[in-house]
Amino acid sequence: MEAASIEALLERAEKGNLRALGRLLTLIEHPTPHAIQILERLAKRAGRAQVIGFTGIPGAGKSTLASRVIGALRRRGYRVAVVAIDPSSPFSGGSIMGDRLRMQEHASDPGVFIRSIPTRGVKGGLSTAALAMIEVFDAMGYDKIIVETVGVGQSEVDIINAAHTIIVVTMPGAGDDVQALKAGVMEIGDIYVVNKSDKAEANKTAAYLQFALEREDIGRRESGWKPRLVKTSAVLGMGIDSLVDVIEEHWNFLRESGWSGRKVEARRILMAKMMAESMLSAKVMEAHMESLGYLEEVARTGEGIFRAAEELARRAARKMLE
């Protein structure tokens, strides 16, 4: 019965029923057995779409730019899906998600599907759920999948294992000499965008970036691709077509060089690793709850706390094996 209804849902989603697709995404948001079942089925068919990651500091204009890029991709005939990751409130765990609002103009376009997902405490926000959603959209035949990250946290770097094309969005005056590009980001981008080039100082930022990219150590990716720089103004709609041209160029490059497949593999490996982590951490949680008495005692004296940790890990591992 359950299996049958999931089957029906899959079938309807495949036929383009948006409601069914929306439901499927909910079902795979948490790694339940159903989620596993669905993902197992779909992953086989996935692997065709270009996954485009937008990263960069909050406020750089990622969502606004993504909205423009969606429009341009649509005009080129692609079906576009968006996974928009928004921060959660650290207090209540609730959230008000705002990325969608900037892309809402596409809401009534049947060729665009936007799904928001809060970080739910995951640093950087690139959760198993986000990766699973990419898999589903890919299997459902979306040509381009845009992933917008929250743009904070070191695990932001995970995006390189999740996306084919990484767009690092920055803006003029976001701090001297591209301070905005925090540690690590200079090494990961396939395309650097100086957004808000309607503002003064855009040229300065662009020149600095260009200079940096000409350095041998950061000016080349493992695949051999040389990162590119594009200036845009998302509000005025300037530079969007050039950006999309480069996105396409990168995609062709990846496909011709065989790197597109390797990127899909990397994404799945990351997903597997993250799933494993969350399974384990769930077991640690369980073990933790069961051992509260013991832990409290150790904590009181302060003695043997590291041994306790080891014990906790062992108990969790045993549970996993049960």
Partner: peptide
């Protein structure tokens, strides 16, 4: 219950409304 069933199992995250 399999090890994945409970939503609590997802790294302590709950499925929020």
């Amino acid at each position: 219950m399999s090890s994945l069933q409970s939503t609590e199992a997802v790294g302590g995250a709950v499925r929020r409304f």
